[in-house]
């Protein structure tokens, strides 16, 4: 495929997902309601418990990261979910495109949504709790947000793979299993408080490293050496693995006929 065709196929997915997002009445709820509720309730809880400003930022960073990852990963999963819901999956796989175009296109839209949400929650945290998420400066912020996006991409692509493998009945299972992993990433606590086997799992999740690196700017001693490099390397490995799984699942769906069953 030429570069132009590559970009066009990705752009096609960007336009479609953006159009669908703009049509969805619940879009604003999805994007705003729960994240805002999350930040407000966690923020109030930190006040009630009389946490130090450092401790409060520790927890709030986790809340914001979770919201951003959630919004972005949902959008990535839309690469197949939208078509699964409307039973039109076969058409996009009849076209001469690869899964990379689907996952990249939907990731771009996911990043736009996630980025907007991040800024909004940061502003909310500042206004309501005097919490300065953006204080470390634009580079650490950019790296942290990139970490969230990479994590969301990986999770979203794994969800695509699971749905392509098991059909839309697997949707709930797919979300549950990938979110379980997220909870272990040390969102609200340092990884060191986790019992040994769980800590090992947490250490295998890229988001853990990006949270660790970012929290260092708020005065917490890093738990890992070179967390950013480790996070990026782990992300690269998982992204490759997730895409391989999605590809294999699609091959299997073509073999079993599931691709046809998920379309009219």
């Amino acid at each position: 495929m030429s570069w132009r065709a590559e970009l066009l196929a990705v752009w096609a997915v960007v336009v479609r997902n953006a159009l669908m997002a703009s049509r969805n009445v619940f879009f604003f709820f999805e994007l705003l309601f729960w994240p805002i509720v999350g930040v407000l309730s966690i923020g109030l809880m930190t006040r009630f418990l009389h946490l130090t400003p450092e401790q409060a930022s520790f927890v709030l960073i986790g809340t914001i990261a979770l919201s951003v990852v959630n919004v972005c990963q949902l959008e990535v999963a839309y690469a197949v979910l939208l078509d699964v819901w409307s039973k039109s999956l076969k058409h996009q796989f009849l076209a001469p495109i690869g899964i990379r175009h689907l996952t990249l296109g939907s990731w771009l839209v996911g990043m736009a949504r996630g980025g907007a949400l991040f800024l909004l929650l940061a502003a909310l945290g500042w206004w309501a709790f005097d919490f300065r998420v953006l204080a470390p400066g634009w580079l650490p912020v950019a790296v942290f947000v990139l970490g969230c996006f990479l994590n969301a991409w990986i999770v979203g692509v794994f969800v695509c793979a699971l749905i392509t493998l098991f059909g839309n009945r697997a949707e709930a299972f797919a979300w549950a299993s990938v979110n379980l992993v997220l909870v272990l990433a040390g969102l609200y606590y340092p990884v060191s408080v986790l019992p040994e086997p769980v800590a090992t799992v947490a250490a295998a999740i890229p988001l853990t490293y990006f949270l660790d690196a970012y929290r260092a700017h708020f005065g917490f001693a890093p738990e890992f050496r070179a967390p950013i490099a480790a996070g990026l390397a782990l992300s690269a490995v998982y992204a490759a693995l997730a895409h391989w799984c999605f590809f294999a699942a699609l091959q299997r769906a073509r073999r079993t006929g599931l691709l046809l069953k998920m379309s009219e």
């Binding site: 096609a12 479609r16 159009l19 409307s86 039109s88 076209a95």
Partner: peptide
Amino acid sequence: SFLWSLRVGEIIGFY
């Protein structure tokens, strides 16, 4: 079957 909320022109454009 195509994406329900897309309009006719948008569907053809997407493909």
